[in-house]
Design a protein around this nucleic acid. Structure first.
Lengths: 254, 254
DNA sequence: GTCAATGGTTTGTCCGGACAATCGGACTGC
DNA sequence: GCAGTCCGATTGTCCGGACAAACCATTGAC
């Protein structure tokens, strides 16, 4: 017997607080996730079987399964019938959240800043009306912003929102991202439809971003929906390709 | 009483086959998904409570919940405690699968074709070695392809694979996509890390794709991992921005 | 020596029940 | 008329158990 092959979770000091309002499965999944994050549960290592783990924690197997399943859905664990559950080897960072450019830059330590160029109402063009599901020519909120990082222009953001959803003040828009403001207003973001492409900069676009005419620009159009299916935002963004690229992780839905 | 407000699932002829090896929850979720897809369950309509649905189908509530939960994860349904489960309004198409360009084009009816330019072994560059987790200079499989749609060049694909994973024949590569070949070889794709950017075409790149020098190109680098965390593929792709853009739907992980 | 049968281990599926948390509407009091 | 309160409805969480299916290693047969 060359290896004792002990269950790594026994030395993990897992514990749950039944008096807490936090669901038990969630407490467990958070502790497991933290252990994976900190390298205490090493990639590839088996997680002792569910029955025994449940017994050790004083939980039922369904509860333990729910905790493990949530981490499987996040891509951190892999289960194999007849084998067990093991920690995925690769480093999964973020499975592509619906994130704002502002948060992305902030997380990367890029000190984002925003210049609000326009913050007004305008009649909806055919394109905007189709995206937001309103009638052409009806009033919509229009916000144009320039996003800077380290004082350098990174992207030009043009967003349209249905009227009456929330009040947008320029001062707020310069302090944080649009999504954070929408969530704070009680809107639960649900899904988004995105298109990413590229094109050559026109003279006007180049001037705005500090690029020469004809320079390659990354473009993104995005329509965001809340959980009732309402379109709550449509945006047309252009990024300096020399300074920005989209990076994300995605999981195979099995 | 202006509206009877009947449970729309009663007229849905839901049924499960207990003798089938297909899990019961999966049978149910597929039938519900099909009903949503075909518009039989209209967006916004309530889904009748779980207890009653379970009783009507002769299933237990956990089984019904599992079926519903899988559709919630797909973004097709939304649950609200105290209210019920309702069909999401927006049209969710695909929540960004790990798909190959070949399948995408085929699904869009674009009659994809592939020209294999290179199919050989080569020593790994530093970039490739880092992505695949092999030592620099070791032999890796190298495949260069030109992807056409309607006879027009769409993208130039350069892929690297660890040796010994699978045999790639040029004839197979011209008939289908790389991912389909990998799955057929028993490799279970798990996750991928992608970077999407843009740059101006060099003279060589322009020639390959039929674009002038300096034309904007969409670029993508992707490293794909299997469920053991092994990197199984690294690719550097360039797309004609005038002909192609990335389009996808993404969900908020709640 | 190689291949097939066997058995133990582990996850997958399913059941029936219980109580808590939350939502929305109806009712009540002011 | 309006605000606060109560209550039914529905999902969220959790339990304990049972059997099936798949995987792996060992054993046995040829």
């Amino acid at each position: 017997m060359p290896k004792p092959e002990v269950d790594p979770t026994v030395s993990l000091q897992l514990s749950v607080d039944r008096s807490s309002p936090v669901p038990l499965y969630f407490q467990l999944s958070q502790q497991l996730e933290a252990a994976i994050e900190h390298g205490i549960l090493t990639p590839g290592s088996l997680l002792g079987n569910e029955i025994e783990l449940a017994g050790r924690l004083g939980l039922s197997r369904p509860t333990v399964r729910q905790a493990i399943q949530s981490l499987v859905d996040k891509g951190l664990l892999v289960r194999r019938r007849g084998v067990g559950t093991q920690v995925v080897h690769s480093q999964v960072k973020r499975p592509l959240e619906l994130s704002s450019l502002y948060d992305d830059l902030e997380a990367a330590g890029q000190r984002p800043a925003t210049q609000v160029l326009t913050n007004t109402f305008a009649p909806a063009s055919a394109e905007v009306a189709a995206a937001l599901g309103v009638s052409e020519g009806s009033q919509v909120h229009r916000v144009e912003r320039l996003r800077l990082a380290h004082g350098e222009p990174m992207a030009y953001l043009c967003n349209f929102l249905p009227t009456g959803l929330l009040d947008l003040e320029s001062s707020q828009l310069e302090a944080t991202g649009l999504y954070r403001l929408m969530r704070a207003a009680g809107i639960t973001l649900h899904s988004a439809r995105q298109t990413i492409g590229a094109r050559a900069a026109t003279a006007v676009e180049g001037d705005r971003l500090g690029e020469p005419e004809g320079a390659p620009l990354l473009t993104m159009q995005r329509t965001t929906f809340d959980d009732t299916g309402r379109a709550v935002e449509y945006g047309t963004h252009t990024y300096r390709a020399s300074r920005y690229s989209f990076e994300f992780q995605l999981l195979v839905r099995s």
